[in-house]
């Protein structure tokens, strides 16, 4: 599991992914962690199969009991099916996730971790001296869905929005936006079910000051490519890729 610091000024953002040892038949995922002081937030920690490499990679950066919070953008297995294992590794942590999915997520096994339900309108979390926001992204693609925005680092962790399905060797950042479009077009047309929800999200996100948009699959958008993505996504007809 490769770990890359994508921000390191006062607090850190670390991206985990591009795992060369990942089983071939599971989708590649990006996991993220914010480290602020002696606390860390683990975001979309991944499926059961990536638990061990993730935990191993994390222990190069923080002590296990410094991971005080976990965030799951929605209920999918590639996002959080490792919950039953994290529950044993981090018994004192809090899981921040949409209120809608609490009863469902508990099926992954959750006896110790505390569920901190995020209301539909979103909420905030303070990590040391850092305030981060859980931004509503409902129906993108899950009916209860949030993204994480860090106003200091100007990073939006955008879950499945901006995702591209590509090989583990793919570069970390989008270099040529136009060239990247074919890698993400089908995904967004098929997975995102609602134009109304999409446009609502685009309007909400345009109000944020974003330098990096970090999706859960594929490459990170940086600088001007964030605006290009929002323009492209706004114009895209979604929920239409029916064979």
């Amino acid at each position: 599991m490769k770990a890359t610091k994508i921000f390191d000024k006062g607090h850190q953002w670390i991206m985990f992914g591009r795992d060369p040892e990942k089983p071939e038949n599971i989708i590649d995922t990006n996991q993220y962690m914010i480290v602020a002081g002696d606390r860390a937030l683990l975001m979309d920690p991944g499926g059961i199969e990536v638990f061990a490499p993730m935990l191993g990679a994390i222990l190069h950066h923080v002590k296990v009991d410094e991971i005080t919070d976990i965030f799951a953008s929605h209920q999918d297995p590639d996002i959080i099916s490792s919950l039953g294992l994290w529950d044993q590794a981090l018994p004192h942590a809090k899981l921040h996730s949409p209120w809608l999915w609490e009863g469902f997520l508990r099926h992954f096994g959750m006896n110790n971790i505390q569920y901190a339900a995020i209301p539909d309108e979103g909420s905030e979390l303070t990590l040391g001296e850092l305030d981060i926001r859980f931004i509503p992204a409902h129906y993108l693609h899950s009916s209860g869905n949030f993204h994480v925005y860090d106003p200091k680092a100007k990073i939006l962790m955008s879950g499945d929005v901006g995702a591209a399905l590509e090989a583990c060797e793919a570069p970390l950042y989008v270099e040529d936006f136009d060239e990247h479009i074919p890698k993400m077009e089908m995904f967004h047309k098929r997975w995102m079910p609602s134009n109304r929800a999409k446009n609502d999200w685009v309007n909400r996100v345009r109000d944020l000051d974003i330098e990096y948009m970090a999706p859960q699959h594929g490459r990170i958008f940086k600088g001007e490519n964030v605006k290009r993505f929002l323009d492209w996504f706004e114009a895209l007809e979604v929920g239409v890729a029916i064979p």
Binding site: A52, P53, L55, G56, A57, L59, H60, H61, V62, K63, V64
Partner: peptide, 8 residues
């Protein structure tokens, strides 16, 4: 596998 991790 991660015996060399700082916080193992």
């Amino acid at each position: 596998k991660d015996a060399d991790a700082k916080y193992i």
